[in-house]
Simulated assay, not measured.
Amino acid sequence: MLNETEKWSSLEEIAEHLGVSKDTIRSWIKKDVIPHRRIGKLFKFRISEVDTWVDSGKSAKIK
């Protein structure tokens, strides 16, 4: 059995995955609503965490 770790996705990859602009992702990061990690100057995401966030309905409540 392999214990594969999910790879980290970039801001560009997560924007494409969600079908939104990079500026929208940056806005969500500023509001601290989208699950992310900061590694140095870069923001990284796990697609599974972002998908769970979307499925929870929390993404629809952003103003």
Rank of each mutant, 00 (worst) to 15 (best):
S10V: 14
S27W: 01
R38Q: 12
S27G: 08
D23N: 08
K41N: 10
E13H: 02
W8I: 13
G40T: 05
S27I: 05
K7L: 00
K7P: 08
I29P: 12
S21Q: 01
T24Y: 05
R38K: 15
W8Q: 14
I14M: 13
P35S: 01
I25F: 08
D32C: 00
L18Y: 02
I25G: 02
K41F: 10
R38M: 12
D32M: 00
H36Y: 15
L11E: 02
L18D: 14
I25C: 06
E16C: 14
W28G: 12
K30N: 13
A15C: 13
E16W: 05
I25E: 06
V33Q: 02
T5R: 14
I39G: 10
S9A: 15
R26K: 10
T5I: 06
G40C: 06
K7D: 09
E13T: 11
L11G: 11
I39N: 14
K22D: 00
T5N: 04
W8L: 15
W8S: 13
K31Q: 07
K30P: 09
D32E: 07
G40Y: 02
E6M: 13
E6I: 14
V20K: 04
E4F: 02
G40N: 04
W8F: 14
S21W: 03
R38T: 06
L11N: 10
S10P: 12
I14F: 01
S10H: 09
I29L: 11
E16I: 10
E4D: 04
K41M: 09
S21D: 03
T5M: 11
W8M: 13
L18E: 12
V33N: 00
L18M: 13
R26D: 08
R38E: 09
I29A: 13
I14E: 09
H17S: 12
W28Q: 11
V20L: 08
K7G: 01
A15K: 03
I39A: 13
I34F: 00
S27H: 01
D23G: 15
P35D: 01
R37G: 09
K7W: 05
K30H: 10
D32A: 03
G19T: 04
E4N: 04
G19C: 12
S27Y: 00
R37M: 12
E13M: 09
H36L: 08
I39E: 08
K22S: 05
K41A: 12
I25V: 12
R37C: 08
A15L: 09
W28T: 15
V20I: 15
P35N: 07
I39T: 11
T5Q: 07
R38V: 09
W8K: 15
G19Y: 04
I29Q: 12
